Computed example of a mutant assay.
Amino acid sequence: MDSIKKPNKSELEFLTLSYNRFYDIYDEIFDEDFWILDEWYRFSVISQGFLIYSELLNYEPIMYSVEKLRTSRPPMEYDIGKFLFKFVRNLLSHFPYFTSWDEIKFNKNIINWNKTDGSIDRFISKYEGHSEVKYRFWEEEKKRMTYISINFPKTYGSDDIYLKDLIEEKSGAQFSYILMKEILNTQVID
């Protein structure tokens, strides 16, 4: 019976390390001083959070929470919470030669250099030409509403596509972390 209890000992160890680091990053990117730091440092910290979140999606109870987004949240939130964030993670992981958010670029040739129909290719192909998705979030401590647009490429071919044109660094990272935290918090008791 203990073998099916969630989380088991190894999961708990992994979850504790992952959640603690994710929450540290979350706090850091909502500190205004973070955004005046070196762009390489910001990029490294932001990237690490996407990597952690993507690994946490492998924990079955978190995936149940993501699946609930299909019916319980606004349109496209499921796609963003699962596929957009994994797309960003995969760009960061498979093409690790960028040093800042604003310089990340790709095109169909780069994405498919090794094989076609990978997860990045499928994501961009699926959302090519999709209309923008708009969100807003309230920053209680700053008494400020922030508006964000998530844009999808009009075409996906040999022309370069910049990540910054899809999702802006500061508001995009902060929005992403808010949604990721909401999903992750579904598994937190204390």
Rank of each mutant, 00 (worst) to 15 (best):
I183M: 05
K6M: 10
E169N: 10
F43V: 02
F152I: 15
I183A: 04
K170W: 00
L166W: 05
W138E: 11
S3Q: 14
L37W: 11
T99F: 13
E67C: 06
G49W: 01
K5Y: 07
D31E: 13
K105W: 09
Y23M: 14
V188Y: 07
M76I: 11
M180G: 06
F43H: 05
K154T: 12
D2A: 13
L15T: 01
P75H: 08
M1A: 13
L17W: 00
R144Q: 15
T99M: 11
I62T: 15
D38N: 14
D2L: 13
I62L: 15
D121E: 03
K108C: 02
F14L: 11
T71H: 12
Y64F: 12
F152Y: 15
P74I: 06
K170N: 11
Y26T: 04
A173V: 06
F14Y: 13
R89L: 00
F34M: 10
K115M: 03
I104T: 08
R73K: 15
Q187H: 05
Y59N: 04
M76F: 13
D33P: 00
W40N: 10
H94M: 04
E128I: 12
D38S: 02
S125E: 10
F87H: 15
N20D: 15
G157T: 04
K154P: 00
R136E: 10
R144F: 11
L37H: 06
I124Y: 13
K105G: 10
I36D: 04
Y147K: 12
Y97Q: 05
D165F: 05
N109W: 00
I46S: 01
T146F: 08
